[in-house]
């Protein structure tokens, strides 16, 4: 059984179930400004994950008693569509979705300057259209871009990526199969310019050395994701120009 599992997750050439190498990310595509009615939005394809994020605000808080006098409230809703998985997912918020909403909010909060918007609220809606493992990381990436698109003051973007353990190998960017059959999964969210970790979860068992390797690998993945986020934002606002051309 063990051999079979190992064979399925990684072949003798070090290739994973979907043909990737140990340090390879899935293909990532981010589009900014896809929801016309939202203040900011983004769509991300992270491997087979397809997620749309819409940001509303800062706006008036309802119910009003939730408002904070000195800063803005950040609300985050992670939701999986009924058709996002192979068997129908009940659209009611599950325990897992409530938890992911909370950890997403906590991973985004440090990047925002919420004290600039007292008595207001920022709503972040994360809708998973298709799930394939690592949807919380993909959701955080898209949410951060959508928040920047909404023009909310931020200290940095948040980039997220998971790493994990398949037998003795520490691999980058765990997919659905590796998440279910692998030995450990560690999603990490990171502020690339400030070099701070805003989310670190671990499901599974790792040694201290493996933990360090896992974290290092996840952070390097976050840095790669950041470049894609940056490119997506630049493309939306400045077209293909990366440098501002001054007129003579």
């Amino acid at each position: 059984m063990y051999n079979l599992k190992e064979l399925a997750l990684m072949d003798e050439n070090g290739k994973r179930s979907d043909g990737r190498g140990i340090d390879e990310l899935r293909s990532i595509k981010i589009t900014v400004g896809v929801v016309k009615n939202a203040d900011g939005s983004a769509y991300i394809e992270f491997g087979k994950n397809k997620i749309i994020v819409a940001v509303y605000g800062p706006r008036e808080v309802h119910p009003k008693h939730m408002a904070l006098p000195d800063r803005c409230v950040l609300r985050c809703r992670y939701h999986m569509s009924p058709f996002s998985t192979d068997t129908r997912k009940n659209p009611a918020p599950s325990r897992r979705e409530v938890e992911i909403s909370k950890v997403m909010r906590e991973s985004l909060e440090p990047s925002l300057i919420l004290s600039d918007y007292p008595r207001a609220v920022i709503d972040v809606f994360v809708e998973v259209l298709q799930a394939d493992g690592g949807s919380r990381c993909a959701g955080i990436n898209a949410a951060s871009v959508a928040l920047a698109d909404a023009g909310i003051n931020m200290r940095d973007l948040v980039s997220a990526c998971a790493a994990g353990r398949l037998s003795d190998n520490i691999v980058l960017d765990i997919n659905d199969l590796e998440d279910k059959e692998g030995d450990a999964d560690m999603p990490v969210a990171y502020l690339p310019n400030l070099e701070q970790v805003t989310l670190l979860q671990l499901d599974g068992k790792v040694t201290t050395a493996q933990f360090s390797e896992c974290l290092e690998k996840a952070i390097s993945g976050c840095k790669s994701v950041y470049e894609i986020q940056k490119e997506a934002l630049m493309k939306k606002y400045f077209g293909n120009e990366m440098e501002l051309k001054e007129e003579a």
Binding site: S111, I113, A148, N153, M154, R155, D156, L157, L191, P192, N193, L194, K230, L233, M234, Y237, F238, E241, M242, E243, L244, E246
Partner: peptide, 26 residues
């Protein structure tokens, strides 16, 4: 400094400058 495109978190300049609109010191 040369005017340039930035996104949140981008370092604009190093040194003792005064941060005005939409700029923070880090």
């Amino acid at each position: 400094i040369k005017r340039r495109y930035v996104i949140p978190g981008d370092k604009i300049i190093e040194g003792n400058y005064k941060p005005l609109m939409n700029v923070v010191k880090s």
